[in-house]
Amino acid sequence: MTKRPVNLMDNPHADRVKRVAQLAGRSAVRNRRQQFLAEGPQSATEAIRVHLGLLELSNSTRQMWPVGETVAEVYFTRQLLVSQPALSALVHQLPSNVFIAETSNEVLQAMSDAVVHQDILVVVNIPPGNSPPPQQAALVAGMVRIQDPGNVGTIIRAADASGADYVFATPGTVDIYNPKTVRSTAGSLFHLPVYTRVDLESFVGSFQGQTWAADGYGNLVLDQTDSFLLNAPTAWLFGNEGQGLNEAELGLADQRVAVPLYGLAESLNVSTAATICLYSSAMAQRRHQPSAS
């Protein structure tokens, strides 16, 4: 396959470099320009694959990441050709309306949010609009006022791995397009819908399934929960790292569910607890699926 021509950039002080670097800063800039950064081979690969229509996605995910509308710009170093030849080949499949440039190390580092750049950076278009989450789903992860980008990214990744239908975030949750969040998803951000600024009370009122709150003081303990209950359509709520879910938020849930602690640890990190809860539901739901005849 003939490689498409690319631009060359070696001036770290160029206006374009500064403009891209701004996307790594405040969420207000990302919101105004409706773009964010996907850094590193894994996130870049999935963004490009979505753009090219190479992933089998659900209809709701495809609506969020339409073919040909995801990637706006791609920047990479020559080292990518050596270290990631498959990704380099994907880059050259992008159509001519996507700006592509090979950069010096200094240029990519000036754009990057990472301590050390990872040889590729993609400018991605934020999906337009903010439609409400679907009322029907088998498994949902709800992030309620979670502040750490790494935790948010890991929960999105765990939801993807466990086969959840979607993720939602309430107001007060860190920007899901924060560069640290995007890196933590390891590409999962492009695999399932993530709905933002969701009003929790409205969601619980419309969701056609049970709503369970992950709560260390819950009276229902996860490893003692009947698999019939775990098998039902479930939206899990995961709360703020320091405060957890407040009483009003807990009051919206059908059950308060505790993850058992078998050792001496006082508690679990919220993303670890979320992974356990999501997988407990996912495995129960799959055990109860009718076998193919």
Rank of each mutant, 00 (worst) to 15 (best):
F36A: 01
G40M: 06
Q42K: 11
Q42E: 15
S43A: 15
S43Y: 06
T45P: 12
A47M: 06
I48E: 09
H51S: 13
T61D: 10
R62H: 14
Q63M: 15
M64I: 09
M64F: 06
P66A: 07
V67H: 08
E69Q: 14
E69C: 08
A72L: 11
T77Y: 02
L81H: 14
L81N: 08
S83I: 06
Q84P: 04
Q84F: 05
P85W: 00
S88D: 11
A89Q: 11
H92C: 04
Q93F: 08
S96F: 01
N97H: 15
N97T: 08
N97D: 15
V98M: 10
V98R: 08
F99S: 00
I100V: 15
E102W: 02
T103R: 00
N105M: 00
E106T: 10
L108I: 15
L108K: 01
M111S: 09
S112W: 06
V116T: 14
V116K: 13
H117E: 15
Q118V: 05
Q118K: 11
L121R: 05
V122W: 00
V122M: 06
V123A: 02
I126L: 10
P128D: 06
G129L: 10
S131R: 11
P134F: 07
Q136Y: 12
A137R: 04
A138G: 13
A138C: 14
A138S: 15
L139I: 09
G142S: 14
V144K: 03
I146V: 12
I146W: 00
D148A: 14
D148W: 03
D148K: 04
D148H: 13
G150H: 02
V152S: 03
T154A: 15
I155K: 05
I156E: 01
R157I: 11
R157W: 13
A158L: 12
A158Q: 07
A158V: 12
G163T: 13
G163R: 02
A164P: 13
D165F: 06
Y166D: 00
F168K: 01
A169R: 04
P171H: 07
T173L: 10
T173K: 02
D175C: 11
Y177M: 02
Y177P: 05
Y177N: 10
Y177L: 03
N178D: 14
P179K: 08
P179T: 04
K180D: 14
T181W: 01
R183Y: 06
